[in-house]
Design a protein around this nucleic acid. Structure first.
Length: 846
RNA sequence: GCCCGCUUGGUGGAAUGGUAGACACAACAGACUUAAAAUCUGUCGAUCGCAAGGUCGUGCCAGUUCGAGUCUGGCAGCGGGCACCA
């Protein structure tokens, strides 16, 4: 008998055996269970941050397989994206070469972890086999009116002559050039997610197995608000300005009109006012991110124009261009009511505009008062409450034909054009005669050209000498291809459907997709709570609208797992260092190569950019896949952040060996015991072990189903600790131990598949344990005769007491009041209340 | 700035409103060993006490309750997202 478990030999042996037997191949049998972890961007090598995501999914996939489900558990690569282009610029390597090499390395590492993927369904999103379908879907969206073109702003780096991602804009400057970034308008493709806003909002109610916080974030993001559209006629002009407001009740407190610098009215007006042009330029001299816009100083420009108040013919309001008014929300024009809106209030102070209170709140509420109350100074609204006043105000607007109630959403349409090479080409041809012409479906895919260079700024597709030159499919005259590519969020918005029929000639086969979908359990980082999940929900609905399927929600259950964190290290030059380049000496961290001191930064999300990653390959090499898996599961619950420590992994390795010894040391005694032949008489010790076995099984099953994996592992440890202490002395006790050990091996298998497989073989069974049914809990072994309950006096713990969990209050009361640690506190005082919860607690209230 | 979370020993964490600290990690002490590794045993929130035992303790301040880590309100610190990172 080996006292050390040989993981190297075992893990490879079983991985090969599983692969040869194709045990993870998904077959379309009911009942089905679709487990999906968010597919990774192939950034290089797998680190422990990735691993956590996949192990969490693998445990549930393996468990459900044992429970008799036909499990679909696929994996693929979200392979388009910016880092490949950055690598191309930095290391002079083609994005495709770089990406495919990363995929190769990461796949090897996946395989070494023993995850139960059906690799026959692998998806590579940068392959034309995949993106051809995306181009087809886009053309269908175009037909259906879901895709359209409009102008919008991008981050423009004037030095590089390139569009930058928000990530590449640091403190308003280009990350490479350092030049101040400006917002520039481009004509781009959009998807009409706003048409689905109400459906996206309403259907959240169906998602009762999604975390509340994720649903709340999506509700806020969609941002439905009910309000009114109100027309303000311009003085001395024939035009009117249309305003959206959620507070039509405060209309009589209006002090000014605020209009977005990007509004066509203003752009038009600026043609004759140079100072306004300067102001607009100032507003655009920053990036496009919401944070930047929100935190910028609030500024206005007085146009000198006025509108008339809609209800008060002799009141005129000045029109300001205001940098905080967004063109994308409402109508791009607001009316300012300084007394009841903080931003308007600050604006009014700055430009000395009147502040007229129109809502009376609680007596001491200072201005601005944003809450509800009774209307004052408001003519026909006086005396009404806020909600009623809104209704009455809208009635008046409608009656006078100068406005109406309206619902708006914060959600904006999804801009999908990117001025980049490494993405899916947009299948469109621009013809000077025919305009925008879709590429005919029989000419798909539009394939990315390979021969591109990255030695000049701008989009390599745009600079390519021949690729974009084509004949117009309609008039055959020379035309040009669209050189923008798709946002990479598109690939991840439908890949879950592709996995259902990954080799289909259409995007997916309807019957297969409808068999497997929705994903029963989706698992990924909380950082995707809004964008990726909302886009996927939208795609599902848009595909439904185009007749692809009848599904309306893609993910039934969602688990958002926390991040794996690690300290960051920087040497004296400020360069980031990998954890393995650093060593602790006499309480201080130094660089191993030259012993110079290291600055230790706070622990944060493992990320390649800060080098604070622990490569999965290193851990698997040193300790084996099962140890890595165990450690990822044992310490933190999946939803929480996880702190990687080298010390913890050692403890997991010790436990793997402990399990190995626990089972293998008893082999000779138990090899002839038949599990199904339960002895007629069990000794009290045998009954104890039997009860413990079933209790453990019960809790472990519940813990796995609820994703309480850390408790699952803790239960396993408690169970094996008890089994270690147990020394059987007669056949019934050996029988009980044999049953316990078999159960133990079966219930560790979702977490530690290699070890479980090895132990199953040691116990004399043929492969594979991973195909064995999950053991059943028998209720008769779960009841207890005696439990320890807590005894309190006036809510304060005074002791514990062993009692039958079914004892009635009257009997219990007599026993408890007589206890030595209760009596002195009670003495002859009057007992006001006696609280007794069977099997739980008693509280004597004096 | 806006939206969403999180905060419990030296550390990770456990606890259907009912004995706070399960299960581990680290540390310390000991056993085995020529020695080391491995393994095993014990101690391990703070504080008072010779002891029995007492008092305090779940970021901070209030509240609800017989009873609050758990529910409610407020505050602080940290993290995630903010539409072109994925």
């Amino acid at each position: 008998m080996n006292t050390r478990y040989n993981f190297r030999e075992n893990e490879i042996k079983w991985q090969q055996a599983w692969s040869e037997a194709s045990v993870y191949k998904a077959e379309e049998n009911s009942p089905k269970y679709y487990v999906l972890e968010m597919f990774p961007y192939p950034s290089g090598r797998l680190h422990m941050g990735h691993v956590r995501n996949y192990i969490i999914g693998d445990v549930i996939a393996r468990y459900k397989r044992c429970c008799g489900y036909s499990v679909l558990h696929p994996m693929g690569w979200d392979a388009f994206g910016l880092p490949a282009e950055n690598a191309a610029i930095q290391h002079k390597v083609h994005p495709q070469t770089w990406t495919l090499e990363n995929v190769r390395l990461m796949k090897e590492e996946f395989e070494s972890l023993g995850i139960s993927y059906d690799w026959s369904r692998e998806i590579l999103s940068c392959s034309p086999d995949y993106y051809v379908h995306e181009q087809k879907i886009f053309l269908d969206f175009l037909k259906k009116g879901i895709a359209y073109r409009k102008e919008s702003f991008v981050n423009w780096d004037p030095v590089e002559g390139t569009v930058l991602a928000n990530e590449q804009v640091i403190d308003g400057k280009g990350w490479r050039s350092g030049a101040p970034i400006e917002r520039r308008k481009l004509s781009q493709w959009f998807l009409k997610i706003t048409d689905f806003a109400q459906e996206l909002l309403d259907d959240l109610a169906q998602l009762d197995h999604w975390p509340e916080q994720v649903k709340t974030m999506q509700v806020n993001w969609i941002g439905r608000s009910e309000g009114a559209r109100i027309q303000f006629p311009l003085l001395e002009r024939e035009e009117t300005l249309e305003v959206f407001t959620t507070r039509p009740d405060t209309i009589f407190g209006a002090a000014f009109i605020g209009i977005s610098p990007d509004h066509p009215f203003i752009e038009n007006l600026a043609k004759t006012i140079p100072a306004l042009q300067t102001f607009i330029a100032e507003c655009r001299a920053m990036g496009t991110s919401q944070k930047e816009l929100d935190t910028a100083e609030k500024k206005g420009f007085n146009t000198g124009l006025f509108v008339r108040h809609p209800f008060l013919k002799d009141v005129k309001l000045p029109i300001y261009v205001a940098n905080f008014v967004l063109m994308d929300y409402g109508t791009g024009i607001v009316f300012g009511c300084p007394a009841h809106d903080l931003r308007d209030y600050e604006f009014a102070l700055k430009y000395t505009l009147p502040v007229l209170p129109v809502v009376k709140g609680p007596s001491d509420s200072p201005l601005p008062y944003e809450g509800e109350g009774i209307l004052i100074n408001s003519h026909f609204l006086n005396g009404l409450e806020t909600q009623e006043a809104k209704k009455v105000a809208i009635e008046h607007l409608v009656k006078e034909k100068i406005g109406a109630s309206e619902v708006t959403y914060k959600l904006r349409d999804w801009g999908v054009s990117r001025q980049r090479y490494w993405g899916c080409p947009i299948p469109i041809i621009h013809c000077s005669h025919c305009g925008i012409v879709p590429v005919p479906e029989d000419q798909l895919p539009v394939v990315l050209p390979q021969d591109v260079v990255f030695d000049q700024p701008g989009n390599p597709l745009d600079l390519h000498p021949t690729w974009k030159i084509v004949d117009c499919p309609q008039c055959n005259k020379p035309a040009e291809r669209e050189t923008d590519t798709f946002d990479t969020f598109i690939e991840s918005s439908w890949y879950f459907a592709r996995f259902c029929s990954p080799h289909a000639l259409q995007p997916f086969e309807k019957d297969k997709a409808e068999f497997w979908m929705p994903v029963d359990q989706y698992i990924g980082g909380i950082e995707h709570a809004i964008l990726h999940l909302l886009y996927s929900r939208f795609f599902t609905k848009a595909l439904k609208a185009c007749g692809y399927w009848t599904l309306s929600e893609p993910f039934k259950n969602l688990l958002t797992q926390g991040m794996v964190c690690h300290e960051t290290y920087q040497d004296q030059t400020g360069s980031w260092l990998y954890p393995h380049e650093v060593e602790k000496q006499e309480g201080r961290f130094v660089k191993i190569s030259d012993n110079t001191p290291i600055t230790v930064g706070r622990s944060e999300k493992m990320s390649k950019s800060k080098f604070n990653v622990v490569p999965a390959a290193k851990i698997v090499e040193e300790y084996g896949a099962d140890t890595a898996r165990l450690f990822m599961l044992s310490d933190s619950p999946p939803e929480r952040d996880f702190e990687w420590t080298e010390a913890g992994i050692e403890g997991s390795w010790r436990y793997i060996n402990k399990l190995w010894r626990l089972v293998t040391s008893h082999l000779s005694e138990i090899k002839n015991i038949k599990r199904e032949e339960r002895p007629l008489q069990l000794t009290p010790n045998a009954i104890k072990i039997q009860k413990l076995t079933h209790k453990t099984l019960f809790h472990v099953t519940q813990d796995i189903e609820r994703f309480h994996y850390n408790r699952y592992i803790a239960r396993l440890r408690e169970f094996s600790n008890s089994l270690e202490e147990f020394s059987p002395s007669n056949p019934s006790e050996w029988w009980a131990l044999n049953e316990a050990l078999h159960t133990l091996v079966l219930i560790v298998s979702p977490a530690l598949p290699h070890l479980a497989e090895a132990l199953w073989a040691e116990l004399g069974h043929p492969p594979f344990i991973i195909n064995q049914p999950w053991p059943k809990t028998e209720a008769e072994y779960l009841t207890e005769d005696k439990v320890t309950i807590a005894i309190q006096v006036n809510g304060k713990m005074r002791g514990a007491f062993e009692i039958s969990p079914r004892l009635e209050e009257e009997e219990a009361r007599a026993l408890i009041l007589d206890l030595p640690f209760v009596k002195p506190h009670v003495q002859d005082k009057v007992i006001k209340k006696f609280i007794y919860i069977q099997g739980k607690i008693a509280n004597v209230v004096l």
